[in-house]
Design a protein around this nucleic acid. Sequence first.
DNA 1: CGCATTTCCTGGTAGC
DNA 2: TGCTACCAGGAAATGC
Length: 268
Amino acid sequence: MPELPEVETVRLGLEPRLLNTKILSASLVDAKPHKKYKDLELSVGQSIKAVKRRGKFLILKLSGNLDLIIHLGMTGVLAFEPFEKHTRVKLEFANENLYFQDLRRFGRFLVVPAGNYQSMPTLHHMGPEPLADAFNPKQFHKALKKTQTAIKTYILSQRPVAGLGNIYVDEALWRAKIHPKTAANKLKKAKAHALVPIIKEILSASLEAQGTTLNDYRTVEGDSGEYAAALQVYGRKGLSCHRCAKKIERIVVAGRGTHICPNCQKLF
DNA sequence: CGCATTTCCTGGTAGC
DNA sequence: TGCTACCAGGAAATGC
């Protein structure tokens, strides 16, 4: 599913084609106006002045002091060629159209006043970008002190750091030898510190591979990401841990399928 | 406020 | 074979 490397790959594909183009029409296709598809008509006649990303959200900065916010959810795909099925949104430009496909309708596509994210709590309270200097060991350790929530759950909340979803959080915790149920404020300082460069390395490597394609995710050009081959725990239930050869297990944390090596990741 | 649980949504698949 | 039940999960809503 689209997490930071996937969304950034999509952003890079969109930017050169959307910059300084005018939205001629914005229409819902097999979707009704809803909290997740809102105020699209306000984007009509506006020009796209920047194509940004914050965590897993794409933010198109529009000329009329508006932001067009796109979240790919689990199955969202953007492309300039029409899809056969599950198209939800079509944006028309002078020379081409942008289509949004979303099989399971977990995605969002909405227009808000620029920078006004009050109605989007996750975006509003989002932590630092993981590849930026603001995400550093000292600050991360400080953030983890704020709650006793399980470390995996807290990272998924986007508050201590932005952009990680179920795949990369499992990968990072395995690399750092941290059990996902460890209370955030109980994590040893050394472990918290170690997790920071690990997160940066995993996300950078995945971005280099254009992300992880398991099922739906595609680049704007329709290509698959190649990072799936590098996954160490996610989707490897019953297979051998690449570090100690014990079998990878699948547990549930905060209602999410969670992959761990029971030998490398002990809960203290 | 903090934290846990439920909801949304649909194609694939396990089980009978 | 054909049906039902359940699973996947990001973010918001709801519950306590």
